[in-house]
Design a binder for these strands. Structure first.
Length: 124
RNA sequence: CCAGCAGGCCGGGCAGCCGCUCCUCGCAGCCGCGGGGAGAGGAAAGUCCGGACUCCACCGGGCAGGGUGCCAGGUAACGCCUGGGCGGCGCGAGCCGACGGAAAGUGCAACAGAAACAUACCGCCGCCAGCCCGCGAUACCGGGUCGGCGGUAAGGGUGAAAUGGUGCGGUAAGAGCGCACCGGCGUCUCGGUAACGGGGCGGCCGUGCAAACCCCACCCGGAGCAAGGCCGAAUAGGGGAGGAGGGUGCCCGGCCCGCCAUCACUCCCGGGUUGGCCGCUAGAGCACGGCAGUGAUGCCGCGCCCAGAGAGAUGGCUGCCGCCCCGCUCCGCGGGGUACAGAAUCCGGCUUACAGGCCUGCUGGACGC
RNA sequence: GCGGGCGUGGCGUAGUGGCAGCGCGCGACCCUUCCAAGGUUGAGGUGCGGGUUCGAUUCCCGCCGCCCGCU
């Protein structure tokens, strides 16, 4: 996950937050939006209220990044923000990677439904 | 061997694979690719002090405000450290201490107690007058009682604290009133750089609180790397110059020319947001050795380069070993755990958190020789 | 990075060196046919660790937690 595939500055985060598709899971919240760049850019967020100590917060963030590296297969020009929820603190890296892949696939289906068929609620 | 004290140190180890950041070498027109190297801590933490650095302010001095507070030394500096003094604690090795000033002034000392300041409640003692008794009367003497004047602070009880302590003399009763020792004060002298300590002499001196106001001595300009500097779009706005030709206004009844102002326009200049770059890591640096010093520390020699991210790099998976706990077992096997905790300009301290372990010196005790 | 403030019963709060109080709430009793209201009564607290002082909620130091500014 080198620098060109990270989300950098505040405004990039802001646009991803405003325009992105939000998908929630038990461990994580993932927001996806397209950036028109041809490569994916990732951002990881761990709340200070969720993990108070900087040492442990760093650990959670690094494990999430490693899980994202394992979950990333093909690039299609997305900005992806992964936000940790409470279960992510104790979950293993393999579990986190599976969860990220699952939520990304869900976001793809959701976006395809909204763009293609249009109008179906699809919240099953 | 047990218990303990002081100082110093470590705080998992060895491999394999996949990743991240920086440096460097080579290739490459660019994106990059390949090789090599480096990559969290003793507290990186809290931000409680002190500095370096940068910008601002500044003739000098004072006030206000804040801090420090036995003495000497160390240091760039400190509220830190070292050594010493004094006091307290401990059998001891040792540990702890904001430890200047209360006859400069102001204030406070609840309750109790006579009194927490200048005071005398109960007492004790002397003198005077009255009454009563020894005594029938007078005088004298003695005793008692009430009142007045005076002396005294020994005793009483209260309290955290009561006007130096103990003993002897002394006295009407007493009192440092006198004497001896102790404690404190002043002075002389000796030792010590000093704090302070030893000794002699003197007079006999009333309390606690200054982490109460305060006095004295010393120290402190303000802000902080988001400091500060450089480059700088888009948009908006500022200043200066030009303004031939063009628009508008003025002089004019109108038109033309001319002059002036202004606008469009052209050029230049400075400020400046997002952003980028520098600051950014070679330093009061680290290791080893020697010298000076009781020590903190300093000096010299030699060697080394040792994180620099920027939504923030040191992670993930696996194997073996070490340590701790539990269970089965009694070769051993299985399971779980492996402290506190993550650099953000840098450095010196303090404080706080921390599983377990190592080294050195010392103290007390038990046993053996 | 720099600075300020607050922690007192379950809740909200006074107290600035000597008694730890007030309101609501809580328990018991009384009143009522019962409930509410009312009355009587009771339990319960100074964030933690040191220090100064005879004595600390108060003064000083160090931690912990919470809140708020500036950049």
């Amino acid at each position: 996950m080198d620098r060109s595939r990270r989300l950098r500055k505040g405004p990039e985060f802001d646009t991803a937050y405003q325009k992105g598709t939000v998908v929630r899971g038990p461990l994580l919240v993932v927001r996806v939006s397209s950036n028109g760049l041809g490569r994916d850019r990732w951002g990881v967020a761990v709340g200070r209220r969720l993990v108070p100590l900087a040492h442990d917060r760093n650990r959670v963030r690094r494990r999430l990044r490693e899980a994202a590296r394992a979950a990333a297969r093909e690039e299609r020009g997305r900005d992806i923000i992964v936000v940790a929820r409470e279960g992510a603190v104790t979950a293993s890296v393999a579990e986190l990677a599976r969860e990220i892949a699952r939520l990304l696939a869900k976001a793809e289906r959701w976006a395809a439904d909204a763009g293609g068929a249009g109008g179906t609620e699809g919240g099953a």
